[in-house]
Amino acid sequence: MSKEFLSQYLLYWLIAVLFMIGPIGMIFKNNLMKKLMAMNIMQVAVIIFFLALGQKMDATLPIEIPGLTGVTNYINPLPHALMLTAIVVSLSTTGVALALLLLIQKKYGVLEEDEVLRRMDQ
């Protein structure tokens, strides 16, 4: 594999793989908890994508070091700020989903999708 591919593009291919795990997991897995986990993986993929956008060569954390000036020396902090929000969103969604799963477990006794649907229609 060329150096260029490894250093520049591999990351995005991995992100793409993670992103696809999301819908594929949600469709093909029967257990509701596993679907939830797949959803989480999908959200993480998007977060990493944003973070990858902010990276720069030979740049350091965006906390000012006296004497080191110039934008090229600090990585872009904006994606990090945005992704904090996105992480919080992901967290809340997971929280709500878990609450719903608890209720489903209590009412139907199982977390397998086909079984839940069957019991729902009775």
Partner: peptide, 9 residues
């Protein structure tokens, strides 16, 4: 929730 989050993502 599942489908909507796919949408949001």
């Amino acid at each position: 929730l599942l489908i909507g989050t796919i949408g949001g993502s």
